[in-house]
Design a protein around this nucleic acid. Structure first.
Length: 754
DNA sequence: GTCTCTAACCTTTTT
DNA sequence: GGTTAGAGAC
C-alpha cells in the first residue's frame, strides 16, 4: 500500500484507525498535517469512501486550502468533493441554505469586529447606557464569551446582584434584535445559529449527520465549547470522529478555546482510541530539548516527550540588548551574517528566516532596522488590507446591494462621497425605523412615501435610493468585479478620489485596484462551494472576505524575512527563528489574567515559537523598551530561566560605534558585484509575484539617499530620502525642473544615473 | 454639513 | 509614539 510507505508506524496507525472515535495527540513537528491528509486519501482510495462523505475542519482558510491541495496531490481528481473548511465558513455555508427557517433572509451579511463594535455602541446609545460606565469593549467580550459558550440571550442568567451582568443581559438581547433587523450576523452568530438550527430542525441536522460519515478536526485544542458541541452533534450518527491536536499548543484560551475539550475527549467518547505522535521531524535536538524542558513546567497537560533523530545542532543564542533598537540591530546583524552571500558555509536565504514577537507593536523597531539595511521582509497581520477605509467603503456598498437591510453599511456609505445627507436626517429616519422595527433602508423608503421630510433632504434621499436600486438591478448579470466597477463609477466614489489628487488618494485608488484584482482572481478560481440557488457570487465573495484571517493572506512572496506574532506562527516552520522581547511584561504579557492557566498559556505561546525553528533559534530581550513613547526597564522573561543553561550561548553586545554603516558599505559593494545578486540579468527575480506587478529589484533595493535619478516626466533629480519597502516604498526626490516630489518608487519608472 | 484639530486612548493574542 | 473619535471652527 503505497500511501502508508511515507509514514512511520505510529502515523500509520493514526491513518488506519478509521472507524470510531480517535484522539491523536500530535506534538509539534510530528507530521500532524501529513497524518490528516493521508488519512483522507486512505479513506477515499482504500476504503472507497466517497469524497463527499468526508468533512474536515481546520482553523484557518490557509490550512484548509493546503490540506485540500495536498490531498489532491495524492489522489488527483478523485479527491474532489471533500468538504474541508473552517468552522466559520462551514457554518456560513450551512446558514446560507437554511437560515430562512430562523427568520433571517439568506442574503444576510457577516459583521466583522469593527462592525460589531459600531453596532454594539449604537445599541448602547439607544439604551442610554454611558460608555464610560459600561465599557463597550467589556460588554463585547462578555457577549463574545457567551456566544462561544453557546449561550443565547434567553438562556443567559445574569447574577441578579451583578449590575454589569444585568446590563449585559439587556444589551445582549437588544444587540441580537438589532442584528436581526439588519439581517446581519456576527462571527459568534455563525456558530450559535447553526446550533439553534440543529436543535429546532432535527431533520436538517440529520441531513448533515448522514452526510458526514467521516469527520476530522485539526487543532482540536483550540476548539471552544460551541464548536465542540456542533461536532458532537454532527458525528452522532456515524461516530467516526478523529480529532488531532496538541494541548501544549493551545493558545486561544482567551478567545474561549477549551483545552478541556482535548483533555476530556476520552470521557466524552469512552470508546475512543488514543494515539500519541512524539517523533519530531522538524527541529534539532537542542531546540527540542529546550522546548520540552520549558513546557514540562505546565501543570495541566498530557504527559509526552518529543524526541528526534535529527542532529544535535547548534546552541541557542541569547542576546540581551540595550533597548529595542539595539535588539533590532542584533536581529539584522544575525540575518546578514546568516544570509549574506559572501560568508562561508551553508548559507541561508531571507525566506528561511522568521522573527516572532508577542504583540504587533513590536514589529516597528524591527521593520525600521530592516528598511535601513534593505532586507526584504513581509509582515503578517498588523495593518490589514481589508480594514482600510476605502476597502471597507467599497465592501459596505456591496453589502448594501446584497442586503439592503444592512443599516450599518447603509450609514457608512450614505454620505460617502458627501451627498449632503447628514447625521440629523439619519437620526430621524433611524428613530422612525426602529419604532416600526423595520430596516433603516426600508424606513427611508417609507419616509419618502409618507413625505414628511423637508424638500431638500427628500431630493437627496430619493437620489440615493435611486442609486442603490439601480445598482441592485444592475447586479443581475454582473460579476462582483464588474459590479464593483459600476458602483465606483455611479456613486462618484472614484471621481471623488481622482479629484483629490493627493498622495493618499492615489494609494487608496491603488488599493481599490488591488481589491478588484482579488475579485477577478476569485471569479477565475471559481472554487466557491456551491451553497444554494439564492447565493450569487457577491455573497460568496463577501463571505470569503469576512472570514479571512491574517495568516490566510500570508504566502511565500519571494525571498523575504517573515515577521509575525507568536500566535500567527502556529503551524509554520522556518530554519532560522528569532523570538524577540523575551521580557517580563511582554512574554509573559502583563495584561494576561492572573490565573495559573493564563501564565501557562503564555508559556505555551513561547513553546510554539521555539518549536517553529528547524535549525537555529535566537532569543533576545531588551533592558529598556519604550511603550507608549516612554522608556521602561524590563526584567528578563522568567521563561529564559526555564531553558537548560547548557544549551544557551550568550551573544556579546556590540559597541554601538561599530555601527552597521561600516558593515553596510562592504555589504552593498558586494551586492553590486555578486553574480547571484545581479538581478538585472533577470535570471532570478528575488521578489517575484508581488500582487501581479513585478517591480524592478534595482529600484527597490538600490535606490538610496544621494543618488541621481531620471524620471520620465520630471527629469533629473537627487534622492533626498527613501522610506518603506517594495510596493509601498516611497522616495522624496528633488528635481531640478519641478522641485521636491514624493513618489511611489514602483510606479515612478525611475532610471538610476549614478 | 464639512473640515480640521485636539485629546484620549492605547497594545495582547483573532475566528 | 501613533491612531482615532469627538468637539469646535468655517
Amino acid at each position: 500500500m503505497s500511501l502508508l510507505n511515507d509514514l512511520n508506524p505510529v502515523q500509520q496507525r493514526a491513518v488506519l484507525e478509521t472507524e470510531g472515535p480517535l484522539l491523536v495527540f500530535a506534538g509539534a513537528g510530528s507530521g500532524k498535517t501529513r497524518v490528516l491528509t493521508y488519512r483522507i486519501a486512505y479513506l477515499i482510495q482504500e476504503k472507497r469512501v466517497p469524497a463527499s462523505c468526508i468533512f474536515a475542519v481546520t482553523f484557518t482558510n490557509k490550512a484548509a486550502d493546503e490540506m485540500r491541495e495536498r490531498v489532491e496531490r495524492l489522489l488527483g481528481a478523485s479527491a474532489r468533493g471533500v468538504w474541508i473548511s473552517t468552522f466559520h465558513s462551514a457554518c456560513a455555508r450551512i446558514l446560507r441554505q437554511h437560515i430562512d427557517r430562523l427568520g433571517f433572509q439568506r442574503n444576510f451579511v457577516i459583521y466583522d469586529e469593527q462592525d460589531q463594535e459600531r453596532h454594539l455602541k449604537a445599541v448602547m446609545r439607544e439604551l442610554d447606557l454611558d460608555p464610560r460606565i459600561f465599557h463597550p469593549r467589556a460588554v463585547q467580550s462578555k457577549i463574545d464569551q457567551l456566544k462561544n459558550e453557546g449561550v443565547t440571550p434567553e438562556e443567559y442568567l445574569p447574577d441578579p446582584y451583578n449590575i454589569f451582568q444585568k446590563r449585559v443581559a439587556l444589551i445582549y438581547e437588544r444587540y441580537q434584535e438589532e442584528l436581526r433587523r439588519n439581517n446581519a450576523l456576527d462571527f459568534g452568530d455563525l456558530l450559535i445559529l447553526v446550533k439553534i438550527l440543529f436543535r429546532r430542525f432535527p431533520e436538517i441536522l440529520r441531513l448533515y449527520q448522514e452526510g458526514c460519515r467521516y469527520v476530522m478536526v485539526d487543532e482540536f485544542q483550540d476548539t471552544n465549547l460551541i464548536q465542540y458541541h456542533l461536532i458532537q452533534q454532527m458525528v452522532k450518527r456515524h461516530q467516526n470522529i478523529c480529532v488531532v491536536g496538541d494541548d501544549d499548543q493551545s493558545i486561544y484560551r482567551w478567545r474561549g478555546a477549551e483545552v478541556g475539550n482535548i483533555l476530556n475527549f476520552e470521557n466524552d467518547f469512552p470508546r475512543a482510541k488514543v494515539i500519541t505522535l512524539e517523533q519530531n521531524y522538524r527541529s534539532t535536538q537542542n531546540i527540542l530539548r529546550a522546548a520540552n524542558h520549558m513546557v514540562c513546567r505546565n501543570r495541566s497537560r498530557k504527559e509526552k516527550v518529543l524526541w528526534t533523530e535529527n542532529r544535535k545542532g547548534e546552541p541557542i543564542t541569547l542576546y540581551a540588548a540595550e533597548d529595542e533598537a539595539d535588539e533590532a540591530r542584533f536581529v539584522v546583524r544575525k540575518i546578514i551574517e546568516q544570509c549574506q552571500p559572501s560568508s562561508r558555509g551553508a548559507k541561508r536565504t531571507y525566506r528561511d528566516v522568521a522573527v516572532f514577537y508577542r504583540i504587533n507593536a513590536q514589529s516597528r523597531a524591527i521593520e525600521e532596522e530592516m528598511i535601513k539595511n534593505q532586507i526584504p521582509y513581509t509582515i503578517v497581520g498588523g495593518l490589514k488590507f481589508y480594514e482600510r477605509k476605502e476597502i471597507k467603503d467599497v465592501l459596505a456598498y456591496l453589502k448594501l446591494i446584497a442586503n439592503p437591510s444592512d443599516g450599518l453599511s447603509l450609514k457608512r456609505v450614505i454620505n460617502v462621497p458627501p451627498r449632503g445627507i447628514g447625521e440629523k436626517t439619519i437620526e430621524k429616519i433611524e428613530a422612525f425605523s426602529r419604532e416600526r422595527a423595520i430596516p433603516l433602508y426600508e424606513g427611508m423608503k417609507q419616509a419618502l412615501k409618507e413625505d414628511w421630510l423637508s424638500h431638500g433632504v427628500r431630493e437627496k434621499l430619493e437620489e440615493f435610493v435611486h442609486l442603490v436600486e439601480g445598482l441592485r438591478e444592475e447586479r443581475k448579470g454582473l460579476s462582483v468585479s464588474q459590479l464593483t466597477l459600476t458602483l465606483l463609477a455611479k456613486t462618484g466614489y472614484l471621481d471623488r478620489l481622482k479629484g483629490e489628487g493627493t498622495e493618499q488618494a492615489l494609494t487608496r485608488m491603488e488599493n481599490i485596484d488591488e481589491l478588484i484584482n482579488v475579485m477577478t482572481e476569485f471569479e477565475r478560481g471559481g472554487e466557491v462551494e456551491k451553497t444554494g440557488p439564492q447565493e450569487s457570487s457577491v455573497e460568496a465573495f463577501l463571505d470569503k472576505v469576512s472570514l479571512v484571517t491574517d495568516i490566510d493572506l500570508y504566502e511565500d512572496k519571494g525571498n523575504r524575512v517573515s515577521l509575525m506574532t507568536l500566535h500567527c506562527a502556529k503551524g509554520l516552520e522556518f530554519p532560522l527563528v528569532f523570538i524577540v522581547g523575551m521580557e517580563e511584561g511582554l512574554l509573559p504579557h502583563y495584561r494576561r489574567g492572573d490565573e495559573i492557566e493564563d501564565l501557562e498559556e503564555e508559556r505555551r505561546l513561547c513553546y510554539v515559537g521555539i518549536t517553529r525553528a528547524k535549525e537555529r533559534l535566537f532569543l533576545s530581550r531588551a533592558e529598556t523598551r519604550s511603550t507608549f513613547g516612554v522608556g521602561r526597564a524590563n526584567l528578563p522573561s522568567r521563561f529564559l530561566d526555564e531553558l537548560p543553561p547548557e544549551l544557551i550561548q550568550l551573544e556579546e553586545r556590540q559597541e554601538e560605534t561599530e555601527s552597521l554603516f561600516s558593515q553596510r558599505g562592504e555589504w552593498s559593494d558586494h551586492f553590486q558585484q555578486s553574480e547571484e545578486f545581479r538581478w538585472s540579468s533577470a535570471a532570478e527575480d528575488p521578489f517575484p509575484g508581488d500582487g501581479g506587478r513585478v517591480l524592478s529589484p534595482e529600484e527597490f533595493i538600490s535606490l538610496r539617499t544621494g543618488m541621481r535619478v531620471r524620471h520620465p516626466k520630471f527629469g533629473e533629480g537627487r534622492v533626498l530620502s527613501v522610506e518603506g519597502m517594495d510596493k509601498e516604498q516611497k522616495a522624496t526626490i528633488l528635481f531640478g525642473a519641478v522641485g521636491r516630489k514624493r513618489l511611489k518608487v514602483c510606479y515612478a519608472n525611475l532610471e538610476i544615473l549614478e
